[in-house]
Design a protein around this nucleic acid. Sequence first.
DNA 1: GACGTATGAATGAATG
DNA 2: CATTCATTCATACGTC
Lengths: 222, 222
Amino acid sequence: MEQQTQQQIEDGGNNQAAGSSANTPIRLTNNRWAPTPPQLRILKGLYYDKGFKYPTPEQIQEICLHLKQYGQIEDKNVFFWFQNLKARERQLMRPIRKVRVGGSLDLNFGSTSSTDDGRSIDLNFGSTGPTGDDGSIDLNFGSPVGYGVDGSIMEQRGEYHQEIETLPLFPMHGENVLGNPKTTSEEGSAYGWYSGGWDDNNGGSCISLELSLNSSGAADMA
Amino acid sequence: MEQQTQQQIEDGGNNQAAGSSANTPIRLTNNRWAPTPPQLRILKGLYYDKGFKYPTPEQIQEICLHLKQYGQIEDKNVFFWFQNLKARERQLMRPIRKVRVGGSLDLNFGSTSSTDDGRSIDLNFGSTGPTGDDGSIDLNFGSPVGYGVDGSIMEQRGEYHQEIETLPLFPMHGENVLGNPKTTSEEGSAYGWYSGGWDDNNGGSCISLELSLNSSGAADMA
DNA sequence: GACGTATGAATGAATG
DNA sequence: CATTCATTCATACGTC
């Protein structure tokens, strides 16, 4: 959809300390802190190398103080950084969920072989069965099994479950209007979220810092 | 972790698992995942038709699992897909950007103070500097090059004497982030600290000056 | 081929 | 500590 005119290609690294002298007008989009390479290195070092995952407020302050040498940074940045890293790391590795394939969603559709833009397509779901049970997602839309991308159409329709109440299409900025069963205290629970980590990389002292172009860079192009 | 120079390869190379009959290539460039028509249909169906916008990790897994029939896909893809769709839609109907600029913001750049914050502590990661710990956290790792505050790679490995000084980017919450005795209280209690401290909320100085963007004007005004 | 747009991916910032 | 929001980066692609 609409994406805000993104401003790219600023400089090789980043720019936040900024205000140096007569440049880096500090884009307003720069409200968000971003660790400078050195800062990142230090943080990672602490986290991975030292296993500093639970820094105390004092330590956070100290770290922050030290990190200030490399750019503007506040305590909260450090705090959040650790929080996020921890959270993501944990939530990243946690696919230990029993794949209850039996009786879950059922993807039974495959029409509209045309473009896929807009919802104006024949999204006439609920053809074969509005389902409306409880349990899992139900992707039961109308349309017969048209073509299988690869022929494997696995019509594994079994029982449809649904629990998604009639949640509004647009939850506005208010809040999650729906009381979605997120906190369904199920055994095992252990939510596994996704975020960072699929990429990331080594932790420790080996940071893949690339010192690409030095002066008039722009060595690559499309 | 900036994704600036780390666009990784999510799945490792393979992108289409099965689809290879009539229409697979959505974005065959094995870089980032791209939903195959069937996948997209299903996802959209869930999102628009069912209003399924807040899938739980489990549901994501299920969806992903089923979507695999139509092509390579990972949990994170589903996760991101939903996240993005939600975000974009929200962003769409939220141009309520009040451009209120009332307020004489005074960016007092060029403050001075210099060594005010830079305690010239040796954070030399891997630098030659032994960084004599003064009872602080040991941030000694190993790092090749050094970076300038602005991120520019400055091979000053060994020592970097900078006095970047906080240098506020804009009149944001200039409260108790500096040498304030905020944590004078107990520490290590709970992680509930940090709440409302950096919440800014300028009582009315919602500076959103979005005019100093590339307007060919000396943006520094130091 | 540059440019604009659409969208996947990443992560900082919050909130509960 | 779990989950979500918001913003931005990066890139594929269509278009001029």
